[in-house]
Design a protein around this nucleic acid. Structure first.
Lengths: 265, 265
DNA sequence: CACATTCCTGCCTGATTTTGCAGGATTGGG
DNA sequence: CCCAATCCTGCAAAATCAGGCAGGAATGTG
């Protein structure tokens, strides 16, 4: 290893693939290291890493990059309690957009779990996430409909054919989309094949689509594309979301809602 | 242990992840120790710990950090129906009757929830109870299948046509029946119309049927009859169950299992 | 062949992040 | 009560970063 091959021109694609290989092999890459290895400037490497991150193939961090977001790699149960501070605030704002009397489909995800906790009475809820369903069981004043199917360990929700078929029959007024990466260029993305298919189906049948995105998922892509950004009617972001990432969205008619600043974190 | 690896340079994020790993592995971390391990100043470590604590991923203490309290990590609702000591004991015994490799249908109920918690790895589980599903999400080694439908507020599980239809397609090796009243004369009973229908359907398709009954439900009837007692292959009862109620059952070939005595209720 | 376009690259500039250190406050044990 | 360890705050240096700009190679077009 460590052999520095002197190729007159290494194609960018080839270099990016090599970076990915090294990433899966070593579990991390360091920008300065890669620059030396490819005999190029760190700027070029940084551009590569930025692009790979935008495509959802790695997670950009200060000094280099790590394999795809630990959030996607760690099973749902570990993330279960992760809805602290920031996500609570997001969830509260999200729940505030739901009106009594509506039929709401709640997609999987910890942010949506936080939203479910603060849902007003009088709504009908459908979900394929057992964690969210568990949260709403026993809430008098909320009609709960569960979607079945094999539960995907990664997303923690029922996916696959059975769930899809059930989703086909739903025409919710509102869809709370979860666990998305959002990028003006790439649109809405997610981390699982079946998850993406499910989201597409849900979007199709929903009257309005609302997504909540944490700041770290703003401006990054994901391996599977769900759809363009203009399918969103509303977007909930954190208090510290950078304006430049939102301007394009507001321009195409997406209503932007800022969550209140979380006390900690 | 204690091996100090020569890390050329560790990315900050990577270091924080490593701290978390160590935290879950050792159950605690010490700031001074980490500083030496990562060849960095204690200030940096302290900053890491502060940040992780702010994100709710650990609990900051004097000298280092501890894992987040498991109690705080589980959602309130999952604990809401927390089984009492008696039901814990029943559930444990129930779970002991499940063998790896089996396909088990777990009916609704808090006793079954307790059983789900102690299920061995390697089983495939189907359920229509979101609380039970929530408990098993993220259990690597357990395949989870969720049944959909409208969630009945009384039983807290998906019932009705949709759930029934899904149940029709299942042929589990084992059925853990829940929330039943058991009487030699009237047979197995339950408290909801749809619930009874669902149970009948499940029993039809199951290879073996096991029920767990608390002592107060032994020898009493219920509004809706599910079926005769001889459909049971096994019955789990509490340590203080009166013999006279069990004799008739043993006579018709039901295997009786007594749970260990619970310390408190 | 001439020209425009596109893509990749390196360099520059100002902004952001990380880090170690100093000084003072806080905590825990004896 | 005292002392040492630990902690937090602010600060400055260094590393890293993003965006803009220009040069050069490759490609496409007339």
């Amino acid at each position: 290893m460590g052999t520095i091959v002197d190729l007159p021109s290494v194609l960018p694609q080839q270099r990016q693939q090599a970076i990915l290989d090294r990433l899966t092999k070593d579990g991390r890459v360091i920008a300065a290291e890669l620059a030396q290895m490819f005999q190029t400037s760190e700027d070029t490497i940084r551009r590569d890493l930025r692009e790979l991150a935008a495509r959802g193939l790695c997670q950009r961090v200060y000094g280099g990059a790590l394999p795809i977001s630990p959030a996607a790699a760690t099973p749902a149960v570990v993330r279960r309690g992760a809805a602290t501070g920031r996500k609570q605030a997001l969830g509260a704002t999200l729940a505030g957009l739901v009106q009594p009397g509506q039929f709401v489909f709640i997609d999987a995800g910890t942010t949506n779990l936080a939203a479910a906790r603060r849902l007003p009475d009088g709504v009908t809820v459908a979900t394929h996430d057992p964690l969210i369903a568990a949260e709403l069981v026993g809430r008098t004043g909320i009609d709960l409909i569960l979607l079945g199917g094999r539960v995907d360990p990664q997303s923690g929700a029922a996916l696959g054919l059975t769930a899809l078929r059930a989703a086909l029959e739903m025409r919710p007024d509102l869809l709370l989309l979860g666990a998305c990466a959002l990028d003006a260029a790439n649109g809405l993305g997610t981390f699982g094949l079946d998850d993406a298919e499910m989201k597409r189906q849900l979007i199709n049948g929903a009257g309005a689509v609302i997504a909540a995105v944490t700041t770290d998922k703003l401006g990054t892509g994901a391996p599977y594309i769900v759809g363009p950004t203009d399918i969103l009617s509303d977007l909930v972001v954190e208090a510290d979301a950078p304006d430049h990432a939102l301007q394009g969205l507001a321009a195409i008619g997406v209503r932007i809602h800022r969550a209140e600043r979380a006390e900690a974190d």
